[in-house]
């Protein structure tokens, strides 16, 4: 009995020593540091394992940085993101945003959803012309003629899943938990949309192939209308 205890003790002592020797070798890279992100957003942020998690690779740095701060500071709500980012500095979030923005990876083919021609027409009209009578601008007015976003803060709309797009527009529309805490031009616009329009736009956007580039500037009237987004640069608002 005594010997067996001694043996067990010795075994554990040796194990403890072995542990020190075997310390896992971890690469000193940002890719390693952001594994907590890529487990959901896909390896290298390329695609998602689940339709809901959006692609973050290749998005505009300014947009990513703002979203990271919004999640951390409670302006955009999603509990897993809020908990992850709770104690991270602006400097580190900026570095992480720069990293994902710099990834230049091929896009997967667009989602294959069948749209009725009336839905497609409605979506195209909203995307490129808007509905001026209801003061709804075209998506392309802010998100660029290619719908690939406008530097530095306005995100591209292509290469995202319809589920994600519907959830975001729906969140703004209903003032729900996810997006309802932000009052800005996008929330105003989404509130004017009908559910039919939200579904049509989300589905249509998800079926578009990704091509083109982000625009460089917002048109002046949109910069004015979306001043709270444009002025987010570095401001702790």
């Amino acid at each position: 009995m005594k010997y067996s205890i001694l043996f067990i003790l010795l075994f554990f002592t040796n194990l403890a020593k072995a542990n020190e020797v075997l310390s896992v070798n971890i690469p000193d890279t940002l890719a390693e540091r952001v594994k907590a992100c890529t487990i959901c957003h896909g390896a290298e942020g390329k695609h998602s394992r689940d339709a809901y998690y959006p692609r973050i690779a290749g998005k505009l740095e300014g947009y990513l940085f703002n979203q990271l701060r919004h999640f951390r500071d409670g302006r955009r709500y999603y509990q897993p993101m809020a908990i992850l980012l709770e104690n991270m500095s602006d400097e580190y979030l900026q570095e992480i945003a720069r990293y994902f923005a710099s990834l230049n990876l091929p896009y997967p083919p667009p989602e294959s959803i069948t749209l009725q021609s009336s839905e497609a027409n409605l979506a195209k009209k909203l995307a490129y012309s808007g509905d001026l009578k209801r003061n709804i601008p075209a998506c392309s007015a802010c998100h660029g003629k290619d719908l690939m976003g406008t530097a530095p803060f306005v995100p591209g709309l292509l290469g995202l899943h319809s589920t994600y797009l519907t959830a975001q527009l729906g969140g703004w529309h209903s003032g729900g938990l996810i997006r309802g805490k932000i009052t800005n031009c996008m929330a105003d616009i989404a509130k004017k949309l009908t559910y039919e329009e939200i579904n049509a736009v989300a589905k249509w956007l998800a079926t578009q192939p990704v091509s083109g580039k982000p625009a460089n500037h917002l048109p002046p009237e949109m910069a004015q209308r979306c001043v709270s987004i444009v002025s987010e640069n570095g401001e702790a608002r």
């Binding site: 971890i26 940002l30 390693e32 540091r33 952001v34 594994k35 907590a36 992100c37 487990i39 959901c40 897993p80 908990i83 992850l84 980012l85 709770e86 104690n87 991270m88 500095s89 400097e91 580190y92 570095e95």
Partner: peptide, 20 residues
């Protein structure tokens, strides 16, 4: 929930744990 330890002067770029 996973999480990152806090960013501090001595550990400005922490490694993180995914929210499983």
């Amino acid at each position: 929930n996973g999480g990152y330890p806090p960013t501090t002067a001595a550990n400005p770029r922490p490694y993180g744990m995914p929210p499983f």
